[in-house]
């Protein structure tokens, strides 16, 4: 399998503070890559480097290269097309102050899709994929901000899927969602793997174990180690990795 994303010696500083320290790793196409690690270990910052939303933070300074299919993301001139290739779901559920329908149709509309039938199809598919369709199909004209926290989180996922991204980044997507729904979403994600590469940032080591092909362990802004799922859980090279993955420290 070919490499989809590669981090090569990437560091991020917020002023004097270091948030990401020399990350280097490769993520293969159509795989699930999980990042685990305690809070403040640079996970979210790393994701923001991939779609370059890090540039909206004035104080952030990025060094090193993020390569998308071998191309440096900084060299991509149309940054919006880059962001459309990458679906992002952050931990805080954010329903935009639009109807449920318009929430999902937001990005396709910005891209110029105006055909009603086409939009209907996208909205239904994405809401089904995020296991929200059955709950909202009768009230698509309700404000997305009025949904419950867990529903808004799945709405965020549906929005991320609306552009059929080639990479889907999920940052602790399940913290606001009940376990049963989480399992259903995990099933869907395993199917979506056929179409896209999935990057999973999670606190739940068991989730990483269930889903990931590769696992990386982050601690204190450093990439401690990364490798195949089975090897990371059973034969970690560093002691701290084993302790964290087996729930002995955190």
């Amino acid at each position: 399998m070919s490499t989809h994303i590669e981090f090569s010696d990437v560091s991020v500083h917020y002023g004097q503070k270091r948030a990401v320290d020399r990350f280097s790793f490769k993520i293969a196409e159509h795989s699930v890559f999980a990042f685990v690690g305690p809070a403040n270990s640079g996970k979210t910052t790393m994701l923001k480097c991939i779609n370059r939303t890090i540039e909206f933070i004035d104080a952030a300074k990025v060094t090193g290269q993020v390569l998308l299919k071998g191309q440096d993301v900084k060299a991509i001139r149309d940054v919006y097309s880059l962001r459309r290739r990458i679906g992002m779901v952050f931990p805080l559920p954010v329903g935009l102050p639009l109807t449920v329908y318009e929430n999902v149709a937001y990005a396709p509309r910005r891209m110029g899709v105006r055909n009603k039938a086409e939009l209907d199809e996208i909205v239904e598919r994405c809401l089904r994929d995020s296991v929200l369709w059955d709950e909202v199909k009768d009230r698509l004209d309700m404000l997305g901000t009025k949904l419950s926290g867990g529903q808004q989180q799945r709405l965020t996922l549906a929005r991320a899927l609306s552009l059929s991204p080639e990479i889907l980044c999920l940052d602790e997507f399940s913290i606001a969602i009940d376990p049963v729904t989480t399992m259903k979403i995990e099933d869907v994600l395993m199917q979506l793997k056929e179409k896209m590469t999935i990057i999973l940032v999670t606190n739940l080591t068991q989730q990483a174990r269930r889903m990931a092909d590769h696992v990386a362990f982050l601690n204190d802004s450093e990439l401690v180690e990364w490798g195949e799922n089975e090897a990371m859980f059973n034969r970690p090279k560093k002691e701290i990795t084993g302790r964290y993955l087996n729930g002995e420290f955190g």
Binding site: T156, R159, L163
Partner: peptide, 25 residues
């Protein structure tokens, strides 16, 4: 601010975000 970030993540430009989400609200 989270609304803006959500839109940027969807590939909307700064002005699109302002026009479609920030200004109407």
């Amino acid at each position: 601010k989270t609304f803006r970030e959500a839109c940027w993540n969807l590939g909307a430009s700064k002005w699109q975000t302002i026009r479609t989400i920030v200004l109407p609200n």
